[in-house]
């Protein structure tokens, strides 16, 4: 999509963008089926706008005008309605971006632990790689592994700049990113939560008790271990 915005006039040669008439827009069958399934979940079909746009973004890489027109054709709404929705939400891309996303949390808790420098290093590391979309993101809800990033939807942290090359290698190779640092493997911090020592879960690499909590080495706030149980 041409980067529309404040400075762009409407193209008077174009027709008005109304609800696409049936058959006007070709929609991939899988996408159509997925959107229709979402629409069936709600009393009002418009409720499916977010899941439908997310599906179209997976199909097209971003919410391109073509992607939006396809959703509009299936949902029977105007493309402007969807564009307005898409532009409101951070995870829906209204400009072309790389297929892989790296959201680096730079909100307070992460930035107190060096997220801004991490983001800058990330951006330097992917400079010129059109496939990887590195962007700052607001609080991702993982301040316990600060500083952290969501890599194609997978939370990893704590991260330091030294982790970046390995992480990007994993991304480009299509491997699980930094498996040891994934949030999925982290145990709760509360020492009282788990009354028993559970057998090691196959997915849980680290020892029980939050020992996998690594803070960036350059951060003087680094602290390891956990307090003694009360």
């Amino acid at each position: 999509m041409s980067p529309l915005g404040w400075d762009t006039a409407a193209d008077l040669e174009k027709p008005p963008a109304e609800i696409p008439s049936p058959g006007e827009v070709d929609v991939p069958e899988g996408l159509r089926a997925e959107i229709e399934a979402h629409m069936a979940n709600y009393p009002d079909r418009r409720s499916a706008a977010l899941p439908a746009l997310a599906a179209a973004q997976r199909e097209h890489g971003w919410c391109s005008p073509q992607a939006i027109a396809q959703v509009a054709a299936v949902m029977r709404v105007t493309p402007a309605y969807l564009e307005s929705v898409a532009s409101f939400y951070d995870m829906l891309e209204t400009e072309p971006v790389g297929r892989h996303s790296v959201y680096v949390c730079t909100n307070i808790s992460c930035s107190l632990r060096g997220a801004d420098a991490l983001l800058a290093d990330f951006q330097r590391a992917v400079d010129g790689d059109p496939e990887v979309n590195v962007r700052a993101f607001e609080c991702l809800g993982a301040c316990d592994i600060a500083p952290m990033a969501s890599v194609d939807g997978v939370y990893v942290g704590p991260l330091s700049s030294q982790d970046i090359p390995a992480l990007l290698d994993d991304v480009r190779a299509g491997r699980a990113v930094l498996p040891e640092r994934q949030l999925a493997r982290r145990l709760v911090a509360d020492p009282h939560a788990n009354s028993t020592e559970f057998p090691q879960h196959p997915a849980q690499g680290a020892a029980h008790g939050g020992a996998n909590l690594e803070l960036p080495t350059e951060d003087p706030a680094t602290a390891r271990g956990r307090r003694e149980p009360r």
């Binding site: 709760v188 911090a189 706030a221 602290a223």
Partner: peptide
């Protein structure tokens, strides 16, 4: 979270001193 040594989630009984959370836990 932030500048604490053991950031994370804790289940507490409401009304305990805040210091117990920030420093103790």
């Amino acid at each position: 979270s932030g500048h604490v040594q053991r950031p994370g989630n804790y289940e507490i009984e409401l009304g305990i001193p805040s210091r117990e959370i920030v420093y103790g836990l």
